[in-house]
Simulated assay, not measured.
Amino acid sequence: MDHIDHSRKGMEGTSIVRNEVIEERHREAWNSLLGIDAQKNQLLAWAALSLRAGSLDRNATAVNRLALVEGPPGTGKTSLARNLGAPLSTIAESAVRVIEFASHEAMSGEHGRTQREVHRILTETVPHLAGADITVLVVDEVEALAIHRGQVSLEANPVDVHRTTDAAITALDLLADICPNVVTVMTTNFPEIVDSALRSRTDVTVAIPLPTKEAVQEIIQSTLKAWSREFPDLKAVIDHPSISSVSEELAAKGIDARQSRKFVLDVLSSDLELASDPRRLTATHLGQAAQRWKGIQ
């Protein structure tokens, strides 16, 4: 089944990479984000309140409908933003659309082109695609658009970098003025280089850390449970006492949420016998793999 909204009208030639109405798969993806309940609740509360405040004076309330999600790679920031619309649709009792702007794709070496593209997407394309729908706009890797101007040398970097930051901030301000039905969630792996003027405009900053030992364990057990639907013998591994020590070792080595989710797959695919018959997987295999794990090199 094709889940993507392929009515490409208004998206051609832009850096919009996602335009779809929230479905059950988004809810499943939201529920699969484990170990960050506090951050999920914070972002959801902000989004719901921002929409309720849509008719109020933005200058008086300081509600810009703008959030920043920051943290190391692989911690679930983009997934959090992309799937926020699932619980938001329940609260709003309405369909919710998600639009994703891949900011790095808007960059151009041609003088002035990036600023024009950013302004056009945020003030024309996004409002057109959103229409009257409640919409979550995801701006991934926002540092590509709004690098901290205090850390950029005009001698070492083109003036376009500074102008692009100005253009992005101006366009986001205008989007907030003209689209009270749109909440914008920006993500970054590098919060220290996001421009301070943009950071000061955000209503909320949600920091996603590397997973704790408890979160790693929850993710691994959740992954094993998914595998056990096809291979029931794996149910014996899910609650094996050694899973706790496996998780502790991986967390101590700095494993992220994405790598935690892939850990079972990595173990199964590293051995031909296990790959041929995943029912052979044991807690011992996981323990040995955790001891060898060195992260992404």
Rank of each mutant, 00 (worst) to 15 (best):
R120V: 09
L56M: 15
T114D: 09
S50W: 00
D37S: 14
H119I: 10
L80Y: 00
A53H: 09
E110Y: 14
A48N: 05
Q115V: 04
Q115I: 00
G112V: 09
L80T: 00
T114C: 10
L68A: 05
A102G: 12
A92W: 06
A86F: 01
D57H: 09
E100W: 03
G74D: 05
L122M: 12
P72K: 04
N59G: 12
R82V: 14
R120S: 09
L49E: 08
D57E: 12
A53P: 07
L122G: 05
A86W: 01
A102W: 03
E28V: 12
S79G: 13
P87Y: 08
A29M: 08
R25M: 08
T78Q: 06
F101P: 01
V96Y: 01
T90D: 08
S79Y: 02
R116P: 04
A29Q: 08
T90L: 11
A92K: 13
A86P: 01
A53L: 13
S103P: 05
A95M: 11
S79D: 08
N41S: 14
V98C: 12
A45E: 10
K77R: 15
R65K: 15
K77E: 09
A95D: 14
L88S: 01
D57I: 10
V69N: 02
I36N: 02
E105T: 14
E100P: 06
L80S: 01
R82M: 15
G74T: 05
I22E: 02
L80M: 10
L68C: 07
I36H: 02
L51R: 00
D37H: 12
A53V: 06
A106K: 00
G35S: 07
E23L: 07
G35L: 03
V63P: 05
A45V: 05
A60Y: 14
V96P: 00
A92N: 04
S79K: 03
G76A: 05
N59Y: 11
L34A: 10
R25N: 09
L34S: 06
A86E: 02
T75Y: 00
S108E: 11
V21H: 04
E70H: 06
R27F: 04
